[in-house]
Each structure stands twice: as C-alpha cells, then as structure tokens.
Design a binder for these strands. Structure first.
Length: 103
DNA sequence: GCTCTGACGATTT
DNA sequence: GAAATCGCCAGAG
C-alpha cells in the first residue's frame, strides 16, 4: 500500500461524489481523514492535477454556497445546474442534494 | 524548520 | 442576513 497524502485522499473522496449530489469541504476533509482541514481541501482541489477526472464542482461550502472554482463560480453553478441541481440565489439546498456516504 | 498562502468553518457584531 | 474576526490544516517557498 502506497502512502497516500492528504491531497490524494481528497481526490479519492471527491471522485466518489455521484452525479446530482454535492458534498461540503468539511465533509470531504472528514472523509479524507483530516476533520477541520476544509482549507487544505480547497487548496488541494485548486491545484488538482486531475481536474478532468475530478468533479470538484460538486464540492460546496457548509452553508450551501457554491464556493470557488478555477473557471469561476458562475461556471461552477452552471455545471451543477446541468446535473439537475437547483440553485437559488447562488445557494444550494443541502437538505436535498447533500451526499451522505454510508458510515 | 519557519513563514505565507488559500476553492473554508464557525462565531460574533 | 451580511460582514468582519479568529481558528483550522496542508502545501509551497
């Protein structure tokens, strides 16, 4: 087993997010093994070397705000909407689209 | 090994 | 509800 770094684990978690659902940075950090490292998650995604294989647009903030994106928030919202996610005033209804993996 | 940065979180004003 | 502040952690210089 190779020693995966925090970033590698983040990539693995984000890659599991199903289409039509979203996850928060805090939750991704938690699954990555570093609860509270939401900033580190955003940092990893920002430099992500596998952007094409990473649905990072499905990762949003804790309060439902889309957060940031390499192409810009507007494009991120457009991608989410294209997956069937409804966004109200730049906000996502986490009560409906938040993906909760089996514990 | 130290310092700065950053697509964040939660609390307070 | 929005803005400001502090705290959090990992990566890069």
């Amino acid at each position: 087993m190779a020693i995966l770094t925090f970033s590698e684990r983040v990539y693995d978690v984000v890659r599991r997010i199903p289409c039509g659902s979203v996850m928060t940075y805090a939750q991704v950090a938690r699954l990555a093994g570093a609860p509270g490292a939401a900033r580190a998650v955003g940092n990893a995604l920002n430099k992500n070397p596998e952007l094409v294989a990473m649905p990072c647009h499905r990762v949003v903030r804790s309060q439902g705000q889309v957060g940031g994106y390499v192409h810009g928030t507007a494009d991120k919202i457009r991608l989410l909407t294209a997956e069937g996610i409804t966004i109200n005033h730049d906000r996502i209804d986490l009560s409906v689209y938040l993906y909760e993996p089996a514990l």
